[in-house]
Computed example of a mutant assay.
Amino acid sequence: MKQILIASLIVALSQAATAQENPLIDGPSWADLREDFVGDTPLLVADDLFTVDAPYRAHDAATVPIVIAQSAGATPIDHAVVIIDENPAPMAADLTFGSAMHPLKFELRVRVNQYSNVRILADTAEGTFMKGRYVKASGGCSAPASRDPEVALASMGLMRLQQFDDPVQMSGQIRDAQIMIRHPNYSGLQRDQVTQLFIGAHFIDKLEVFQGDEMLFTMEGGISVSENPVFRFSYRENGAPAFHVRARDTEGNVFEETLQKNVES
């Protein structure tokens, strides 16, 4: 029994250490960026409002998962900005959330160009809070695209919905969903692997996701959102049979899709 207790303590301590292994670190970049993003607005301590999960050392610098999560009963986050200090364009995503997204649990994947703080500025009725993680990754913004440009452009705008629970009928239930959009999201720093010429920046800069007529979230995106963007999120079911997704890219292309939910009639 004593050995079991000791083993359990070691595991618990290890998990606690892992959870704290990559907090934000001090650096000169944020001193310059802060004025652009918040000016003189005081930043509040976010310990009890939300958590941010990101890998200490990224497996793939071009698709680094960032998870923002709240516990039930937390003050609603209505707006959040994802900032990657050391990226060429630090603003990765400017997000606005509807009431059905509270309490917030939201994941997106980003590019990290060099070792950097990844910080979240979260707005609530109480003020602006900041939290984040330090991520060891490099080359994410210039990493070669996974597909040939002609193939990538041919499938551009295709969307797919995945849900992680059984069909439900009751409105008000918290559910999980994931939306994937086919788009190369070229950063402008990648080279064509045949010609070795730079591929011009071409990415989704506006995204709107609705549940029926109810807005779930919108995003203004930059070059740091990964290729073939994926968004996983929790939401409160309102009984609408489908999501409506509208995306616009920097070339003026507009993609719209109605994605049927697994809701029982």
Rank of each mutant, 00 (worst) to 15 (best):
M1S: 12
M1R: 12
M1A: 12
K2N: 09
K2P: 00
Q3K: 13
Q3P: 03
I4F: 09
I4V: 13
I4K: 13
L5V: 08
L5R: 11
I6M: 08
I6P: 04
A7R: 10
A7T: 09
S8G: 04
S8K: 14
S8L: 15
L9P: 01
L9C: 14
L9W: 14
I10R: 07
I10L: 14
I10G: 03
V11Y: 08
V11Q: 04
V11P: 02
V11H: 04
A12L: 15
A12I: 14
A12R: 11
L13N: 10
L13I: 08
L13Y: 06
L13M: 13
L13V: 06
L13S: 03
S14G: 15
S14N: 06
S14P: 01
S14R: 00
S14M: 09
S14D: 03
Q15C: 11
Q15G: 02
A16F: 10
A16V: 11
A16C: 09
A16H: 12
A17D: 10
T18V: 11
T18R: 13
T18Y: 10
T18M: 10
T18K: 12
T18E: 13
A19W: 06
A19S: 12
Q20A: 15
Q20G: 00
Q20E: 14
Q20R: 15
E21M: 13
E21K: 14
N22D: 04
N22Y: 04
N22S: 07
P23Y: 07
P23Q: 08
P23D: 06
P23I: 09
L24N: 04
L24P: 07
L24V: 03
I25F: 00
I25D: 00
I25N: 02
I25S: 03
I25V: 14
D26A: 11
D26M: 09
D26N: 10
G27H: 05
G27S: 10
G27I: 00
G27W: 01
P28R: 05
P28N: 05
S29H: 02
S29R: 11
S29A: 14
S29F: 01
S29E: 11
S29M: 09
W30T: 01
W30R: 01
W30E: 02
A31R: 07
A31F: 01
A31I: 04
A31C: 00
D32G: 05
D32P: 00
D32S: 15
D32N: 13
D32Y: 12
D32Q: 14
L33H: 04
L33W: 06
L33D: 02
L33P: 05
L33F: 04
L33N: 02
E35Q: 13
E35M: 07
D36C: 00
D36R: 11
D36K: 10
D36S: 12
F37A: 04
F37V: 04
F37H: 09
F37I: 03
V38A: 10
V38L: 06
G39V: 08
G39D: 03
G39K: 07
D40K: 15
D40G: 12
T41D: 10
T41W: 00
P42N: 06
P42G: 05
P42K: 07
L43Y: 06
L43A: 06
L43K: 09
L44E: 05
L44V: 00
